[in-house]
Design a protein around this nucleic acid. Structure first.
Length: 579
DNA sequence: TGATCTACTTAGCATAAGGTCC
DNA sequence: GGACCTTATGCTAAGTAGATCA
């Protein structure tokens, strides 16, 4: 029945070095809620990107050569690398960069504005370097890869309670330009070069403190905090608005895997409460109390449309919203109890959806809008905290984001349950899964920009398909000839000389065409939908594993290597497993 | 009670790696 | 073995949510 067995999956997926060391943590009791995350923690700290190597290429200002100090040149090179991209013409990015650039140049510098600067010399240098890199001999590439692997082998692992675990990011972020998304007010600011003095290291009390890799420097701080899972953290000393950056173990580690499993278990627990919760918030929707009506209506939208909760944001961030921070300008009441939501959500991705809602919520929304200006909050009486508090009254640990996990997983399971046709090829089954995955991605509004050359690629595939279809017609004619001794098909292609091989060739061609058509359709359907996000974060992997076992689809067709490692705990799900 | 801090998850894009075709 | 295309991975920004502070 199962397309693969648990034993072989395990051997294949466990990172080599963990084979003897890792415990099957997922078989243990997960309900250990102790705040102590580990007893011993040892690692090699973080690495720093290589120092800047000056290239000496000058820039022009109003047509005149200007030589730069290495520090100035480094910043100029950062800008040269965005010339020609969308960043170059983005107003905020340009303005902020100019401010930072003039600061680096210092007072009384010849250069007074970004507009007069010509970076073509540096651009040409970058391009030449790129070409040179591309043209490296195979040997050199191989040697480089081996060095990288060796460093990774030495530095890229931590020992947590005697288990060797992969670290996700051991090199701290290099200096560069802050690429804030959407209309981020600080996009274009200079990210500083970090030094050990910016880094706080977390290791076990009795464990070795990592050696600082830069001579003459020292870590900012060394702590022994076993209530957290981070190995190090830092904050850009220049970018006051930037977040703290943490160094964590990789997705395949126990820390991450355990949390992931608990997340899905929590979402499964919601199943038992969902009916009561829905009943309750429908009651609130009809309440006399305005605050209750807002609470009920907001939760209705979160549940129905899988919206994010929408925390407050600071002035220093892009103006994006979620459910609780929706403003009057983001919603339009349409005919027949339809509403149109149009707003920028996380990552400034547009949420644009017209949907029919229940009359009670429609009337409520009408009431919330009435008398307000367009920039006023739609749900002005509630906060994300009060909404989450309301949710906690039903179930311990319940918060708004659990609804997204729950609804995504339920959606996948329901879609996959529709699979009932026999004798489908693996290709068709994969397409079926992808279609189910797409339903979830659309629900969660996971988008991606259309890949470059998309149209050209589609055209190419269509040409290939047409070519194959022509071959099918030709083979069919050829088979008739072989059968009846009529005129042979005129072609420069080699055709089989007997009927049996011709029939086989025809069958092969038909399969190829079928697969090509499937791939073409999938490519087009998924043009602007990001399928990965829901696969990685929202859909309980056990639903996928169970379905793959049941329908005999190799798991590698759905989960690539890294996902199989991340979801190792889910690989044991039986074909009959239900979310 | 609201603001801020902390720790973690979720997100899309760029690019490296890998595969395919000629 | 190189060009081209696809897929996987790395990078880092941007969320959520609980804790702590003023």
């Amino acid at each position: 029945m199962a397309a693969y067995n648990n034993k072989s999956m395990e051997a294949e997926d466990l990172p080599k070095k963990r084979k003897h060391e890792s415990s099957h943590w997922w078989e243990d009791d997960l309900e250990d809620k102790s705040t102590i995350k580990w007893n011993s923690l040892e690692h090699h700290g973080v690495m720093f990107p290589p120092l800047y190597q000056p290239h000496g290429m000058p820039i022009l200002y109003n047509g005149e050569h200007v030589s730069l100090t290495p520090e100035q040149e480094e910043v100029a090179t950062m800008w040269a690398s965005v010339v020609g991209t969308e960043w170059e013409t983005k107003e905020i990015f340009r303005k902020n960069f100019e401010k930072n650039w003039l600061r680096v140049l210092g007072e009384n510098h010849t250069i007074k504005s970004l507009d007069g600067c010509d970076f073509k010399g540096i651009q040409a240098h970058i391009e030449a370097q790129r070409e040179l890199r591309k043209a490296r001999p195979t040997e050199e590439k191989k040697a480089e890869r081996e060095i990288k692997q060796k460093i990774d082998e030495e530095m890229g692992y931590a020992i947590v309670d005697n288990v060797r675990e992969k670290i996700s990011n051991i090199i701290v972020e290099p200096p560069g330009l802050f690429r804030g998304r959407g209309q981020h007010p600080k996009a274009g600011y200079l990210k500083a070069r970090l030094s050990p003095e910016d880094i706080t290291i977390n290791v076990g009390k009795g464990n070795k403190v990592p050696i600082c890799p830069l001579p003459g420097h020292a870590w900012k701080n060394v702590t022994h905090n076993s209530t957290v899972t981070w190995l190090a953290f830092y904050k850009d000393p220049e970018l006051t608005f930037s977040n703290v950056k943490y160094v964590y173990l990789s997705a395949s580690s126990k820390f991450k895997g355990l949390n992931d499993k608990l997340k899905y278990e929590k979402a499964r627990r919601l199943k038992e409460y969902i009916e009561g919760i829905r009943e309750n918030y429908h009651g609130k929707i009809r309440s006399e109390n305005a605050l209750d009506r807002q609470l009920g209506s907001a939760l209705y939208l979160i549940d129905k449309l899988a919206l994010r909760v929408g925390n407050e944001k600071s002035e220093d961030e892009a103006d994006t919203v979620g459910c609780c921070s929706l403003r009057v300008e983001h919603i339009k009441l349409e005919e027949d109890y339809h509403i149109t939501l149009d707003f920028l959500g996380k990552d400034s991705m547009r949420y644009f959806n017209t949907v029919q809602i229940i009359p009670e919520v429609y009337e409520n929304l009408k009431g919330f809008i009435s008398g307000k200006d367009k920039e006023n909050e739609l749900f002005d009486l509630i906060t994300t905290t009060s909404l989450n508090e309301y949710l906690k009254s039903f179930m311990e640990g319940l918060s708004a984001k659990v609804f997204r996990t729950y609804n995504a997983s339920i959606c996948l399971q329901q879609q996959l349950a529709k699979f009932n046709e026999l004798d489908q090829t693996v290709e068709e089954k994969v397409k079926f899964y992808t279609d189910a995955n797409r339903e979830v991605a659309i629900l969660c509004n996971h988008q991606k920009s259309t890949p470059k050359n998309f149209d050209a690629q589609m055209e190419k595939l269509q040409d290939k398909l047409k070519e194959k279809l022509d071959i099918i017609v030709m083979l069919e004619d050829h088979i008739k000839f072989l059968k009846n001794g009529k005129n042979p098909v005129k072609t420069d292609k080699k055709l089989p000389t007997n009927e049996e091989s011709a029939r086989k060739a025809l069958a092969r061609a038909k399969t190829t065409v079928k697969n090509m058509e499937i791939r073409l359709k999938m490519k087009d359907d998924n043009k602007t939908v990001a399928l990965g996000t829901s696969k990685i974060n929202y859909m309980d992997p056990r639903i996928t594993v169970a379905w793959c076992k049941k329908e005999e689809v190799p798991i590698e067709r759905i989960f690539p290597k890294t996902l199989r490692a991340k979801f190792i705990w889910a690989m044991y799900a039986e074909p009959s497993w239900q979310f």
